[in-house]
């Protein structure tokens, strides 16, 4: 009866916190809760799982029953969206402007021209040019409540969704419990410390692509967080080789090509995961100028070249 399978998550005691672990958003998810009460941890863990699944199901591009699918199959017709989707679209519009078009939620179709398995590839320039016709937020009509897109265009919340979920889940759990907590979805982390608590969350940055709680010894960097967030952009394992040059998997929506000379990964530490994720992606898109970009922002970061 008490088997873990029926809960959908595993709950363990680690030091003075309860840790719930489950799989979602294409990776491992951890929620650390500073309480000695298992029933409270159970309650919060199921809420966390519920909220994670909700966001995943609502904004996944792999489903055919959600708003993303509805927009992507709208065939040029306007699609009215709910408040939460509207906030995400508004955010996407604003960061598109702020990044001068480098951060674009319509750029997902470009991935069809690339394979990032560490192999030598010969890009199909014609195909990329064709795909570029279907990319560009400036071709989207967004009035704050409904969205109209040319047929063939697609939106993808992949660059926002996980960070959004981390912040959302952390905020929701804190609202529900008032506890100090840490939410870690495959290295995208948000920490919260309850008012009056002297706790801080020690986070080790281990492998460039994986940030974990300080349990391993291979940490290349440490961060001690109270109320903060960490997000990483880039992936050491996802790249291709063109003309002998290593190209990472983050594509520039204006050229349809990976950014040359970019760091393998950029990890940013700031106040929210959404913000950290965006700054990390912007740093990668800045290529060789990544560190200059990060220094200009005045945030803590860790770059692997």
């Amino acid at each position: 009866m008490d088997s873990e399978s029926q809960f959908g998550y595993v709950l363990n005691r680690r030091d003075d916190v309860w840790v719930a672990e489950y799989s979602a958003m294409a990776g491992p998810c951890e929620v650390h809760m500073a309480t000695d009460r298992q029933s409270e941890a159970d309650r919060l863990a199921s809420l966390a799982l519920s909220e994670t699944r909700r966001i995943e199901q609502k904004f996944s591009r792999y489903r055919d029953d959600n708003i993303v699918h509805q927009i992507n199959s709208s065939n040029g017709e306007p699609v009215a969206v709910d408040d939460e989707t509207a906030r995400l679209l508004e955010y996407a519009k604003q960061v598109h402007a702020l990044s001068e078009g480098q951060f674009d939620i319509t750029s997902g179709v470009l991935r069809r021209a690339w394979v990032f398995r560490g192999e030598v590839v010969v890009p199909d320039r014609e195909f990329i040019d064709e795909l570029l016709e279907r990319v560009g937020w400036e071709r989207v009509t967004w009035d704050g409540s409904s969205l109209t897109m040319a047929p063939g265009m697609e939106i993808d919340f992949g660059g926002i969704g996980k960070e959004y979920a981390v912040d959302k889940v952390a905020g929701m759990l804190f609202e529900q419990s008032g506890l100090s907590l840490m939410v870690n979805f495959g290295g995208d982390i948000r920490t919260i410390v309850a008012e009056g608590s002297a706790r801080s969350w020690l986070v080790g940055i281990e492998d460039p692509s994986v940030v974990k709680g300080l349990s391993g010894s291979s940490a290349v960097g440490h961060a001690e967080l109270t109320n903060g967030a960490i997000a990483t952009s880039g992936d050491t394992n996802r790249f291709c080789i063109v003309d002998g040059k290593r190209l990472g998997h983050i594509l520039n929506p204006k050229t349809g090509w990976p950014v040359a000379g970019a760091p393998r990964t950029v990890t940013v530490i700031t106040s929210t995961c959404v913000e950290a994720g965006f700054l990390a992606t912007m740093a990668v898109l800045s290529g060789a100028g990544a560190e200059a970009f990060l220094q200009a922002q005045g945030v803590k970061y860790h770059v692997i070249w």
Partner: peptide
């Protein structure tokens, strides 16, 4: 220097 603007957008989103 876009950090303050990003922070504000993140806050609005969340």
């Amino acid at each position: 220097f876009i950090k303050p603007a990003v922070a504000a957008l993140a806050a609005a989103l969340l």
